[in-house]
C-alpha cells in the first residue's frame, strides 16, 4: 500500500516546502514564468494521481522532480533531442571567460576571476541561462542546477552520452560568452584593459 494514500496534509506540506525548488527548476527548463507555474501545477497534480507508486516518503523529493522533468520532456523532448540546426550550432565551444579575465602577472597579488564573479548578479546569470538555445539550456539546467549525471541526462533525453557532453560544453561556453558580453555592456569594473574585444 502507498505511503501517501490517505495523507493529504503530508503531501501538501511537502509540496509547499519543495515549491521554490520545483519552480526554480521549471523556470530554468521552460525559460519563462507562466509556463513554469503551469508545469509545476501539472507535476503536483500528477504526483497526487500517481502517489500509489511512491514506496518511501524519503524519496518524495527525487520522485517529484522526476515527474516534473518527465512532464516537461514529454512535450519538448523531440525538439530538445533533435534541434533544428541553427547558426548557434556552429558556434565553437571554446570560449572561456577565465581566459578573458585571468591576469597571470597578478597571480600573487589578486584574484581577478573571483572579483569578476562578485560583480555579476543572479539576474545576470538568469539572463545568460535563459538566453541559451533550449537544447543547451535544458542540458546545463539538468547538469549544473539539478546535478544529474551525464548518463541520467542521456537517458532522459534519449540521446547518446556524447551528445550530452557536447551540448554541455557548448552550453557552458555560450553562457560564459553571454556573461562576458553583459559585463562589457555594463562596463563592469575589473575587466582587464585591452581584453574587451571579442574575436
Amino acid at each position: 500500500m502507498s505511503v501517501l494514500l490517505d495523507d493529504r496534509d503530508w503531501f501538501a506540506n511537502h509540496v509547499l516546502s519543495l515549491l521554490p525548488d520545483l519552480l526554480g527548476t521549471a523556470r530554468r527548463l521552460t525559460g519563462n514564468v507562466a509556463d513554469a507555474e503551469d508545469l509545476v501545477a501539472e507535476a503536483v497534480a500528477r504526483a497526487w494521481i500517481n502517489r500509489g507508486a511512491l514506496q518511501h516518503r524519503d524519496r518524495f523529493r527525487g520522485w517529484t522532480f522526476r515527474i516534473l522533468t518527465n512532464l516537461f520532456l514529454e512535450q519538448r523532448r523531440a525538439e530538445i533531442a533533435h534541434p533544428i540546426e541553427t547558426s548557434l550550432e556552429a558556434v565553437s565551444d571554446d570560449f572561456s571567460l577565465f581566459e578573458r579575465i585571468h591576469q597571470p602577472f597578478l597571480l600573487w597579488w589578486g584574484d581577478t576571476e573571483r572579483e569578476f564573479l562578485d560583480r555579476v548578479f543572479r539576474e545576470d546569470f538568469e539572463r545568460a541561462l535563459d538566453g541559451l538555445p533550449e537544447c543547451h539550456r535544458v542540458v546545463v539546467t539538468l547538469a549544473d542546477i539539478r546535478g544529474l549525471r551525464y548518463k541520467e541526462i542521456a537517458d532522459l533525453l534519449r540521446v547518446p552520452i556524447g551528445t550530452v557532453r557536447s551540448r554541455l560544453a557548448r552550453g557552458r561556453s555560450l553562457l560564459q560568452r553571454a556573461l562576458w558580453d553583459h559585463a562589457l555592456d555594463a562596463g563592469l569594473k575589473g575587466i582587464p584593459s585591452g581584453r574587451s574585444s571579442l574575436p
Binding site: 521554490p20 525548488d21 519552480l23 526554480g24 527548476t25 523556470r27 530554468r28 564573479l117 555579476v120 543572479r122 546569470f125 538568469e126 541561462l129 546545463v140 539546467t141 549544473d144 542546477i145 539539478r146 546535478g147
Partner: peptide, 8 residues
C-alpha cells in the same frame, strides 16, 4: 553561482 538558480 549557477546552482541557486534552481530555486525561486
Amino acid at each position: 553561482r549557477l546552482a541557486p538558480l534552481g530555486s525561486e
